[in-house]
Amino acid sequence: MTDQNHSTVSEFILIGFSNFPQQLLPTFFLLYLLMYLFTLLGNLLIMTTIWREHSLHTPMYLFLCALSTSEILFTVAITPRMLVDMLSTYRSISFTACASQMFFSFTFGFTHSFLLMIMGYDRYVAICHPLRYNVLMSTRDCARLVSWSWAGGSVMGMMVTMIVFHLTFCGSNEIHHFACHVLALLKLACGNETSSVTLGVILVCVTALMGCLFLIVLSYVFIVAAILRIPSAEGRHKTFSTCVSHLTIVIVHYGFASIIYLKPKGPRSMDSNTLMATTYTVFTPFLSPIIFSLRNKELKNAIKKNYLRKFFP
């Protein structure tokens, strides 16, 4: 290898949306800005409603409040940088800032999956073991589960980030993404360890995320079995309706993640990959407050009671 190929990279260049048609960028910017503001306001509305309405001080809504917090922090960590990319041609980012961005992205992503998993467990206990619900899902136990979710997400995020940035980056420093995306960054690494580290990162992420999904699916297998034993159709419908919003978010979360990480290999341009990545970073947090506020009757009524009726009597 030449000396040039051995030179290490001290900063990266985020290509982002630089190769997109410039006349489309103002439209993209306005669209994503509105979605970003709606995501923040929607999740803040859910959090303040749960805080103010005492009837919602239950484990299910405590987990929902934690999920909204995760959505807000994830959106604040990622989306503003994407909006800046749309207004600039190229943007340099230091080695440390890139590592920090990846850490926060992984931390909130893993935390989000862990919270969805314990929300599935909450529905399982409520439907399959209703008499033991208050014992198994006490306030202390719920707080402990939320704390473990955040701690687990932080540890996973730190571990994956340290593994990736332990590599040597040389040659090109252009990241064809609007953020320090792990797959785009690993393409810039060099050395004999690159292939093994790439495989290790993929295995860690897939094991953690698929493990959460497996436990969620297992919870719903028992939930469906319990619902089918309810004699009346009205009772089955009422019981299942308490799971609809959570189940919808799980489908959205893992569906959009699959578009990015499990898409089939093919002749795609870098621009299409960048645009596809926005489905997970923007659309998932955007849809979350809509799904929970529309599909959850108690939360919807609480929002009407606390806000809509005050401003629109």
Rank of each mutant, 00 (worst) to 15 (best):
L73Q: 02
F17Y: 15
W148I: 06
L131K: 10
Q22N: 12
A97L: 11
L247M: 10
I251W: 13
V224M: 08
F38Q: 03
V206S: 07
K263V: 11
A66C: 13
P21H: 12
L275R: 15
L115F: 04
W150A: 01
F178K: 04
Y36D: 07
H54L: 13
R144I: 06
M137I: 01
M137H: 12
C98W: 11
F95K: 14
V135D: 11
F292I: 01
I249M: 07
N306M: 13
S245K: 11
E234I: 09
T79P: 01
K263W: 13
G211A: 05
G235C: 02
R132D: 10
H181I: 07
F312A: 10
L37K: 05
R144H: 15
S92V: 12
M1F: 11
N173D: 08
V224A: 11
L183M: 14
A126F: 00
V155K: 13
K187I: 12
F165L: 05
Y121V: 12
I163L: 08
W148F: 13
V182F: 04
L62N: 15
S154A: 05
M276I: 10
F104S: 01
M47H: 12
S100P: 11
G153P: 00
F283V: 09
M276Y: 15
S100N: 05
L294M: 09
T284R: 07
F28M: 06
F312Q: 04
L218N: 06
V182L: 08
Y124F: 05
A184V: 07
S55V: 11
I291M: 00
L64S: 08
L188F: 04
I223C: 00
K310L: 15
T89R: 04
Q22I: 14
L209R: 03
K310H: 06
P289A: 02
T75F: 04
T279E: 13
L56F: 00
I15H: 09
F108T: 02
T242V: 14
Y307L: 07
C170K: 14
N43G: 04
K304D: 14
A225H: 05
